[in-house]
Design a binder for these strands. Structure first.
Lengths: 144, 144
DNA sequence: GTAACTGCAAACCTTTTGCAGCTTG
DNA sequence: CAAGCTGCAAAAGGTTTGCAGTTAC
C-alpha cells in the first residue's frame, strides 16, 4: 500500500511519531480543500472512533502546524481557527463580508512574487494565503 | 479642523452615528498599519478614558466592519481577532511560522487580479489580505 | 523500557448578550 | 424626544493545560 507508506514517510521525514489519531486527522485533512475547524475534524473523527478527545485534536494540529504540514488560518465569520493541509498547489477564496458566501478564485499570480521574496528576504517560504473581501451580487443589491 | 470634519463626513456617509467612543476607536485604528487586537485598542483607549468597556469596543468594531470601514482578520499566532482600517492603499506581510516575526512586503501584484475578479464574479470588492508564511532566516537555521 | 502521546476535567481567554441608563441628532 | 449607543455583569464559545494512564519505537 504505497499511499500508507507515503504518509508514514512524510511523518518520519518531519520527525512526527505515527499514531492512530494522527493518521486519522491527517486523512481527514486530505479530504478538504478549504480550511476546516477543529470541531469539524473532531466530528468526522467521531464517526470512526468516538473516544478521540478534542484536546488531542488540538495538540495534533499544533504539531502539524509547527512541522509545516498544515497551515493555520481562521474561518471567516467565526472565532475559530481553520486548518488546511499545506499542499503545493492551493486555492484562493473570494469572501462576501455580509453573508460569508465563498467563491473560489482560480488564478494565482503569486508564484513569481514568492520567488522574488525568497531572494529578497531569505525566508524559507512555505505557502501563502490570499483572501479578497467584498460584497457578493446579492448582498450588494440588498443593502443599498 | 478639516481632519475632524473628514471623519464626521465619513461616518455620516456610512450612516454611522458619531459618538465619543467611536471617534476614539477610529483615531486609534488610524495609528496602526498592521492588524490590532481588541485588547490593544482597549488598552490605548484606557489611557485617555478608562471607563470605556471592552464590549463597547467589540460592538464599535462590528459596526465598522459591517460598514466596510475596517477589515477583520486574525492576529497570527493568537486566537484573537485583528482589526485594520480598510485603507485604499494597503500593506502585505511575510510572517515567520516559528517566531511570528513580521516583514512587510512592498509589492502588490493584485490590483489587476481584483479588476479581473470584479468582472468575472460581479462582487463589489472592498479589499484583500495577503499573508505569506515561511521561516525567517534565523528560525530556518536554528531548526534543521 | 522510555519518551512521547492521549483522555479527561478543569482552567483560561476571547467574544457575545440582556438589561438599565445615558447620548446623539 | 426617540432611536440608538454604552457600561456592567453574566454566559457562551473556543482553546489550553496538568495529570495519570497508555502507546510507539
Amino acid at each position: 500500500m504505497p499511499q500508507q507508506s507515503n504518509k508514514q514517510k512524510l511523518f518520519a521525514s518531519k520527525g512526527i511519531k505515527s499514531t492512530k489519531q494522527r493518521n486519522m486527522v491527517f486523512d481527514i485533512l486530505e479530504e478538504f480543500e478549504t480550511p476546516v475547524s477543529v470541531e469539524q475534524i473532531h466530528l468526522k473523527l467521531s464517526e470512526v472512533d468516538s473516544t478521540v478527545n478534542m484536546s488531542t485534536v488540538y495538540r495534533i494540529l499544533e504539531v502539524f502546524v509547527n512541522k509545516g504540514l498544515v497551515l493555520k488560518t481562521n474561518i471567516m465569520g467565526t472565532n475559530s481557527a481553520g486548518f488546511i493541509l499545506n499542499r503545493l498547489e492551493h486555492k484562493h477564496q473570494l469572501v462576501c463580508l455580509k453573508c460569508n458566501k465563498i467563491v473560489p478564485i482560480n488564478k494565482c499570480p503569486l508564484n513569481k512574487l514568492e520567488q522574488l521574496m525568497r531572494e529578497e528576504t531569505d525566508f524559507e517560504i512555505m505557502g501563502h494565503k490570499l483572501e479578497v473581501f467584498g460584497y457578493c451580487p446579492d448582498c450588494k443589491e440588498r443593502d443599498k
